[in-house]
């Protein structure tokens, strides 16, 4: 009996978005009288940071500070249509829609500012700090807040923008099966290091180290959060989680999520990553999606590491101690039979 260490590697190419019947998202932006901008969406932030990232994209495009942008995802009944936040699509799809809406709203803002500054629209710039300037004439400027207020109380105009992005439906070629399933792909490679206890069959994951290529990172802290949390979740899928665990007597199966097996902080391996940026041609500012993929490559990397450590190849998840012990027994039986036959 021993504790055996092994290393495994796995890679993933992950599509951003889906395309089974057209994949649209839309956005509406308007300025309030105080000069902040409200982005109305039906796209839900379930913790992945959509509101933060979309706010950054809107602010960058509008030319205002990020804290001047309010993301309103309050109601899917009344907001502009979104297919949903899944398939790592939101930063790409919703980001494209918001960028388009922000460009239109920015033009509307500059048209009012041009009236106020008595200057051509083409000669105006936003400084990102809440001012519209006449390029090359630093004395002539007006606050965005003042433009927004005057648009509504003096000029009777809206400062607003509409944005839509749709990946059109791609039919499948009946002869070849070829289609265009996604908009861009992100890539990752993971190296996992494990220690297998051949007496108990238990696996300790010691390290999950990954390289990611995710296009332009809008928010590197959120990208890292996805990768670290996803690595843990991948480990959880690889070794622990199932709603139908094998028990000799089904009466002993878990009845609820309090008996659902997941790793806790004590099982936490060392998790690290490097992130490379190769901007996509279709995403706003070159983004790709990085969400679901982060739980993918850790799984086969861990399974490969187990094989490297103890020579047991398990091909159904999760890799429980029982499966490893049965695999070891079979392997030892085969080895001793071969040894006996060789004598």
């Amino acid at each position: 009996m021993a504790k055996l260490r092994g290393t495994g590697i796995a890679a993933v190419n992950y599509p951003t978005g889906m395309n089974l019947g057209g994949d649209p998202s839309q956005a509406l932006i308007h300025a309030t009288t105080s000069g902040s901008f409200v982005v109305a969406l039906s796209s839900t932030d379930l913790g992945q940071g959509l509101r933060t990232v979309i706010g950054q994209i809107a602010a960058e495009t509008l030319g205002v500070a990020a804290d001047e942008v309010v993301i309103d995802t309050a109601d899917t009944d009344t907001g502009p249509h979104c297919m949903g936040t899944f398939a790592s699509r939101a930063t790409h799809r919703v980001g494209n829609a918001v960028k388009a809406a922000a460009e239109e709203a920015r033009t509307a803002l500059l048209e009012v500012a041009a009236l106020e500054l008595n200057a051509p629209v083409g000669g105006l710039v936003l400084d990102g700090f809440g001012n519209v300037l006449v390029a090359g004439d630093p004395g002539r400027c007006v606050r965005v807040a003042e433009v927004a207020s005057k648009a509504q109380f003096e000029y009777g105009r809206t400062i607003s923008g509409r944005g839509a992005y749709m990946k059109p439906k791609s039919p499948v070629d009946p002869e070849t099966g070829a289609m265009d399933p996604d908009s861009t792909e992100a890539h990752a490679c993971t190296i996992a290091e494990v220690e297998v206890d051949t007496e108990t069959g238990q696996v300790a994951v010691l390290g999950i180290r990954s390289a990611y290529e995710v296009g332009r990172q809008v928010n590197p802290a959120l990208v890292r959060g996805q990768i670290v949390g996803g690595a843990w979740m991948g480990m959880s899928h690889a070794l622990y989680e199932t709603t139908e665990p094998y028990y000799p007597n089904p009466d002993h199966k878990p009845k609820d999520f309090s008996e659902y097996v997941m790793p806790g902080p004590a099982e936490l391996p060392e998790i690290d990553c490097v992130v490379l940026e190769v901007p996509s041609s279709t995403g706003p500012y070159g983004v790709k999606g990085v969400g679901e993929m982060t739980a993918n490559s850790p799984i086969p990397a861990i399974v490969n590491a187990i094989y490297h450590a103890c020579g047991v190849r398990v091909d159904d998840l999760p890799v429980t101690p029982e499966k490893i012990l049965r695999g070891l027994e079979a392997k030892w039986a085969t080895e001793s039979a071969a040894a006996a036959g060789g004598r």
Partner: peptide, 11 residues
């Protein structure tokens, strides 16, 4: 239980 972060940032 935390389902998102993998506990590392919490620690």
């Amino acid at each position: 239980v935390c389902r998102c972060t993998g506990y590392a940032p919490i620690i």
